[in-house]
Simulated assay, not measured.
Amino acid sequence: MTQTSPRIDLGRTIRAMRRRADLSQRELAAKSGVPQATIARIESGRAADPRFRTLEALVAAVQGRIVLSVPTACDGVEVGGGIDAGPAGPGVVEEGGGQATCGLPAVPHDELRDAVGRRYPAHLDAWPVHEPKDWPGAWWADWYNLPPERWPLPLPEATYERDRGYRDRRRRAERVRREFSIRQVVEPGRSATSWRFVAELPDGELIGELRAHERTPHLAYGDDESVWPRDLVLDGVLVAGEHRRLGIGRGLLDALLRRMAEVRIGGVSGIAEGPGVNFLAACGFRIASRRPLAMCLDLPVRSGPGRPP
């Protein structure tokens, strides 16, 4: 006995492909020649059986392809073909929930609806709105801390950002947060008391670095080494500007603390200024008044004619 292969959810698949190609319905209509109204009907499920040529034009517009195969009996179940997403990812057809879905990442906000029950644009990033800071339209929220009953505008259930540059930066930040890894670097010729950790992307791009070194207080005070516990001085935590506020600096510091625990080093200190103070405080550092103060000397600089090179 054979079982017919479940049908692909075309609406969900086209929305996912359109999102991966970063195209609105209007832009996909212009590239494919398929009317926007037809695309809207397919995505909403109102066009239950669209023409093959229509699907072919839509898939070609996002540089994908449709894969057809003769069903083959496999353990009593027929296995068919599906849509190859091309640049959007593998086109494996997976069975689940009584329907077949293309192997594309689903639209993350596909279940959100606006006030009249419509889906938000698949190619954009939509999110729920709980307070004014969640809504880009609340330009007044940055200046006034008002109770809800005094908000000058009602908040929507959800919102999205139309600016493509913002959208691209947001998606890249999500990818970096998901994919970066941290490792300790052990280099030939480097002293064992010098520690270095790096944060990298899968392609090897360096996006963050932490350096520290072990102190030897017994050399300064002339006591036996066993009297003084081992500790570290934090030389610096650097994160590429476009990748800050993604948890990379915290991840580097956590890796340092784990390694310290492994080798039984119980303390680390550092000097910070500006935002670095807040960062270290958020990571559990405290102000150690017994430590030396950070000091600087500003030299007078002559200006005008005769200034030395």
Rank of each mutant, 00 (worst) to 15 (best):
G11D: 00
R170Q: 14
R178V: 09
A261E: 09
A272G: 00
R175K: 12
L293R: 08
R291N: 14
S226A: 15
S226L: 09
L55I: 07
A115F: 04
V70M: 08
R177D: 15
G117E: 08
P128S: 05
V116Y: 15
A261Q: 14
P148I: 06
H109M: 07
V268G: 03
P87M: 01
L253W: 11
G249I: 04
P136D: 11
P156D: 13
L155N: 09
R46D: 06
V92P: 02
P121R: 03
A122W: 05
H130Q: 14
W139I: 03
S69G: 05
A192G: 15
G91T: 05
V70F: 10
A240L: 10
R51L: 05
G80V: 07
V233P: 07
W228P: 13
A240G: 11
E94R: 08
E78A: 06
L297A: 14
A240W: 06
R26M: 08
P152N: 05
R171Q: 15
M17G: 15
W228S: 15
P90S: 11
V176H: 08
A115W: 00
L232E: 01
S194C: 08
A48L: 11
K31L: 15
P152M: 02
W228Q: 14
R259G: 14
L299V: 13
S5M: 09
E157T: 10
G204Q: 11
A40C: 10
L58W: 03
C283S: 11
P108Q: 00
V92A: 07
V34H: 04
V93R: 02
T54E: 03
G241W: 08
E43V: 00
F180W: 12
Q25W: 04
E157W: 00
Y144G: 07
V34T: 09
R258Q: 06
Y144H: 13
W135D: 13
G304L: 05
R211L: 13
W151Y: 15
A255V: 01
W139M: 04
P148V: 04
E78V: 00
V116P: 07
E149A: 11
G103W: 00
E149C: 09
F279S: 01
Q184L: 08
G45P: 03
A61K: 00
L28C: 07
G81Y: 04
P308M: 09
D163L: 11
R291D: 13
G306H: 05
I83R: 01
E205Q: 15
A220L: 13
R18M: 04
R302E: 14
A199T: 09
Q25L: 11
